[in-house]
Amino acid sequence: MAVRLLAHEVADLCLGKPPLSPLSAASATVRDAVSKLKSSGESYVSVWSCDHSSPPRNNDCGECRCVGKICMVDVICYLCRDENLSSPSSAMNSPVSVLLSKAQGVIRHVEPSSSLLEAIDLILQGAQNLVVPIKTNSRRKLPKSSITSHNGREFCWLTQEDIVRFLLSSIGLFSPIPAVSIDTLGIISTEFLSVQYHSPASSAIGAISCSLADQTSVAVVDDEGILIGEISPFTLACCDEMVAAAITTLSAGDLMAYIDCGGPPEDLARVVKARLEERKLEGMLEEFTISPNVPSNSSSSSDEESLSPTASLPRSGRYSRSSSYSARMVRRAEAIVCHPGSSLVAVMIQAIAHRVNYVWVIEEDCSLAGIVTFSNMLDVFYERLQSMA
């Protein structure tokens, strides 16, 4: 069985994956990226650099490379920059390249024949998405966009979540490791991003940007270090670009309520509008309609919550937030938590069920002990797979 697992190629993990919808790095603007995100229903869009001046050879796609990925959080953080607050319209018309991460190796092209071990190794080196050519049936008619953008080739990408899901399907092969606690395995990271509940949300912009790059989140804590909630890129990615106005004007605690399931309460929307007027940020008022918004992704919140029994952070009355939800929301804007004694497999299931790459670790008194990420988990499986080889 172990030999069969190691024999799997990257192509096996790509079965059923949809082709990437490309965005041109040369001609697209930030506004184009926002439009693409909203129309596609995807959390991310891929950005490509293609040179078709010479015909492809040997089934190659020519000089077509995925140079990055963009989500709504990239747009929100960009609009929150001081130079863009007064003129968001101009910022929206900027080239899409201003949103691309400058970090090397975030996107890696791999061949379908690459091994599972090679894929995990690239993830542990810092790759967030592996771009893989799709083996297509020659008789299947390709969409016009694929023919014009990649010379008839289609690509998909694999994420950390895809690989963890795949490993979970063969979890019995790793016994007894899955039943061992995350504390015993030593995979609880005590280095995490946080912001005080009453601090301005704008003070967390840098942390939000870093958490997006690290595929984690920003903890919202009180003065005693108790975890109240989080400002998660995975939740922000389901919102509209107008959240930039909320980050500019609200506290971290109010921002949690603003992005909670279903869009902001009307009273907070009014607060955001009034504060923009006070700060004379007419540009934001003109560019965005400050009203309760509906996240753009299409997935049932109630269905998502019923996938498995998971722990949600208890909240005291003084920190309570709106309990409303939207049927189009991917997940609730609550922190998903576990304890140091939780087993590895339980934490894996929690993260996968809530479509996040991490789980917060809290003590019995709800004080924040650390965070466990997919990368931490993959490190454990990588060592075991190497011993199987």
Results as ranks from 00 to 15, higher is better:
Leu6Glu: 06
Asp51Ala: 10
Ala351Cys: 14
Lys17Trp: 02
Pro22Ile: 01
Ser324His: 03
Ser189Glu: 10
Val132Arg: 07
Glu42Arg: 12
Asp60Met: 04
Ile120Met: 15
Ile70Thr: 04
Tyr325Val: 11
Val272Gly: 02
Ala333Gly: 14
Ala26Gln: 13
Val345Gly: 00
Gly152Ala: 00
Leu385Lys: 04
His8Lys: 15
Val361Trp: 00
Ser322Gln: 14
Lys141Ala: 08
Thr190Trp: 03
Glu305Arg: 15
Ser97Asp: 09
Thr148Pro: 01
Ser40Met: 03
His150Met: 14
Pro200Gly: 04
His198Tyr: 12
Leu344Ala: 03
Ile247Met: 14
Ala213Tyr: 06
Ser322Thr: 14
Arg4Cys: 05
Cys238Ser: 12
Leu85Ile: 07
Ser146Val: 10
Tyr197Gln: 10
Gln125Glu: 13
Lys102Ser: 13
Ala179Met: 08
Tyr325Met: 13
Ser101Lys: 10
Leu313Met: 13
Val110Arg: 05
Phe288Met: 07
Thr373Trp: 03
Leu307Ser: 06
Leu268Ile: 09
Ser87Met: 02
Arg331Ile: 06
Asp12Phe: 10
Leu344Ile: 06
Trp48Tyr: 15
Arg165Ile: 07
Leu173Thr: 09
Arg318Thr: 01
Ser86Trp: 02
Gly152Arg: 06
Ala353Cys: 13
Leu5Ser: 05
Cys210Ile: 08
Val218Leu: 09
Leu15Arg: 13
Glu191Pro: 00
Ser115Leu: 02
Cys66Asn: 13
Gly283Tyr: 05
Ser149Glu: 03
Asn137Arg: 12
Leu167Val: 07
Pro19Lys: 08
Ala119Arg: 02
Glu224Thr: 09
Pro314Lys: 14
Glu111Ile: 05
Val272Lys: 15
Asn293Gly: 11
Asp214Ala: 15
Tyr78Ser: 03
Ser40Gln: 04
Val356Asn: 08
Pro309Gly: 02
Ser324Ala: 10
Ala311Pro: 00
Pro314Glu: 13
Met348Lys: 03
Leu385Gly: 00
Ile290Met: 12
Val294Ser: 08
Thr136Trp: 04
Ile205Val: 15
Ile76Thr: 06
Pro18Ala: 11
Cys14Lys: 09
Asp32Trp: 00
Ser114Tyr: 11
Lys135Ala: 09
Pro112Thr: 06
Leu185Phe: 07
Glu304Arg: 15
Asn297Ser: 08
Ile188Ala: 03
Gln128Pro: 01
Ile187Thr: 04
Ala33Ser: 07
Gly341Ala: 10
Leu20Cys: 12
Ser300Thr: 10
Arg332Met: 14
Cys80Gln: 06
Val98Tyr: 07
Phe288His: 04
Val67Glu: 00
Leu158Thr: 03
Val45Pro: 03
Glu266Val: 15
Thr184Val: 11
Ala327Phe: 07
Ala346Leu: 05
Arg140Leu: 14
Glu154His: 02
Thr190Ala: 11
Val106His: 00
Ala7Asn: 15
Pro95Lys: 10
Leu368Ser: 01
Ser302Met: 14
Ala201Ser: 12
Leu158Gln: 01
Ser43His: 10
Val271His: 08
Arg355Asp: 09
Ile362Thr: 14
Ser21Glu: 07
Thr136Tyr: 03
Met92Arg: 13
Leu168Gln: 12
Asn151Glu: 11
Leu15Trp: 03
Asp365Thr: 04
